[in-house]
Write a protein that binds this DNA or RNA. Structure first.
Lengths: 345, 345
DNA sequence: TGACGTCTTGTAAGCGCTTACATGACGCCT
DNA sequence: AGGCGTCATGTAAGCGCTTACAAGACGTCA
């Protein structure tokens, strides 16, 4: 096994080339080199070529700190998401990234693990790291976070939910409305005994809105509120929650899950304990992750436009950064009717 | 809908306070303020208090660019991964992130979409962004990338594969050996007509090593080489590849897939065209993503320790940064025997 | 021919911070 | 009392880059 030396101290230490070095190599002033890199059209063809050759020859890369110092911006956007372990966030982030990268920005990611305090910390760190703007998931957080962002003059955009009246622009969808739609459809299939497996709702407005959507549709229809159980996100957790729910309410004909991961776990558990899905128990999800169409039976769920959302959010921060006026945006969701939801037993 | 103003230009624009401002407010020199912030113990109690009060009063936050310029480091690590859309990378990155965050570093992510040129670009951008170190996936890339990193004095660590002799430390596993193990096991079940659905192998040593592993095991056993088809990664692509493969070689009893996503697609397609898995066609995957245990039939695959790998890689860059000597590391993989692989028909 | 644009390049002043070095105040010893 | 550590603080030199301004070269037009 080869051992690798870290940064060489002292002796062999050859510094990275600077603008000066390039200027010397190309026999021009540093100003000219800088111009070649930032506004090439103002430099003569011949000089430009000479400079670019020198840049290549020295493998020069401008110093970030110096540039940020002068330009007063870092071309960096920070994002704080609950976790990349949920495909839905990973894909959303990928979309954000694609847009940012195309515009010359980079993404600084941070995750909170669904912990509001960790999220607040992350925002501070991001600010200290010079993020020009930040992306946040959901609305729920201490007002102090928003105040901090405001004093620091750091524009923020909220994703994954849409609040037309918030103090910060939000790009997302109406979690509650989507669940109302799903629930109404289920009601039309005759379901009356309904359970909900939700993610933790504390500090999570998306989860809360989804539950609220279900209850709204039920009360609209004059049906008893759903039995709700909260759990951490995860496949195993979804399964455990289903057992717990059924243990208390064996007569449920439908279990609505807060997301697809929970639903996948619930389906697996249901089958493991011999329940026929959707024959005697229907199960639905939310998000429409890739997995949703692959499980047996395939999952009836709500398709969330994560890519569009990520892209729109990225564009929104960029617009804010450009000093433009940005209105939030509500994106449509779509009910994906598959096999896990059937008529009530 | 509320419209949100971007950065205020001109008028209302109050600049963020600088060290100077704090110094003036506290009636000390900038050096003293700096010392209060960086090595408080060298400043007298009284002065320190006065300075800290000023800091608080002005809501002062040190300028990132200036600090990076002087300190010659940004406490930022860059990572270039193919895509976050594959859960395996998303989870690996999450692990990296967790370690980095705990050590006060941040992660700058970039994705290449499996394009070597885009990856090289990303490395340059990362360097320009002041990344103190970088994480790269796999070995395959232009030597110039390594040279660039070397001149820039940016330590790099390679993940997802392990090459004991590379010029850069690598933390990963032996893709080929893992496939040899999988293939040998399949052979023990009597399979003789074998196909492989691989991701694109150009510029992707992991994919190539996996295919090589299969062929190695087959030639060892004196069996004809597997029929290989290459495709982009994706569920739909996996399905299409299976059709194509079976169209040409209808007598295959086993199709080994380069990863779980391809395998999931292949399983779905196989069932769609009426093949019984594993009854008359066995299918295997690689990675053991969450999905693997949930599809029907559950997927026989190779478990890759992505979290451990991510954590180990993050520690390795940090160690390199600290000037320590780092040896690469090989992590073990594990064969996950589930239902999609059965005896040969 | 000379005044005056136009185009290209150079000069040099910072950006906000850290830190080596200089300075001054104080108390102790001989 | 004079000399000398010790400690707290100030002074100022950059770090690598951008950019306002200056300067030189050249061509044009009256």
């Amino acid at each position: 096994m080869t051992p690798y030396k870290g940064i060489e101290k002292g002796f062999g230490m050859k510094k990275a080339p600077t603008l000066q070095d390039v200027a010397a190599e190309a026999r021009v002033s540093t100003a000219t080199v800088s111009r070649c890199l930032n506004s090439p059209d103002v430099v003569s063809e011949a000089t430009r070529q000479r400079v670019l050759d020198a840049v290549k020859a020295l493998d020069y890369a401008p110093n970030f700190g110096a540039r940020a110092l002068v330009a007063k911006r870092t071309l960096t956007i920070g994002a704080v998401i609950p976790t990349m372990e949920n495909a839905i966030f990973a894909e959303g982030i990928q979309a954000v990234q694609d847009v940012l990268q195309a515009e010359g920005y980079m993404l600084l990611v941070s995750s909170s693990g669904y912990d509001p305090e960790a999220e607040a910390d992350a925002v501070h760190t991001l600010a200290a790291r010079g993020a020009d703007g930040v992306l946040l998931i959901g609305l729920d957080r201490e007002p102090s976070v928003y105040e901090f962002l405001a004093t620091q003059q750091i524009p923020a955009v909220i994703v994954w939910t849409h609040d037309p009246n918030g103090s910060v622009p939000s790009v997302g969808f109406d979690n509650s409305a989507a669940m109302v739609e799903m629930t109404r459809h289920a009601l039309s299939l005759g379901h009356k005994k309904i359970g909900v497996i939700s993610g933790r709702t504390a500090g999570n407005d998306r989860a809360r809105d989804r539950v609220r959507g279900v209850q709204t549709a039920l009360s609209e229809a004059g049906i008893a509120p759903a039995k709700v159980i909260e759990t951490d996100y995860g496949i195993a957790e979804g399964g455990a929650a289903l057992s717990a729910l059924l243990a208390q309410h064996p007569d449920l004909t439908l279990v609505i899950c807060g997301n697809d991961v929970l639903a996948a776990g619930a389906i697996r558990e249901a089958r493991a304990i011999g329940r026929n899905v959707p024959g005697d128990l229907s199960i639905t999800g939310f998000d429409d992750i890739g997995l949703a169409a692959l499980v047996e039976p395939s999952l009836t769920t709500v398709r969330v436009p994560h890519r569009d959302m990520g892209e729109a959010a990225a564009r929104a921060v960029l617009a804010l950064l450009a000093g433009e006026t940005v209105a939030g945006q509500a994106l449509p969701t779509e009910l994906m009717l598959r096999d896990s939801l059937g008529p009530a037993a």
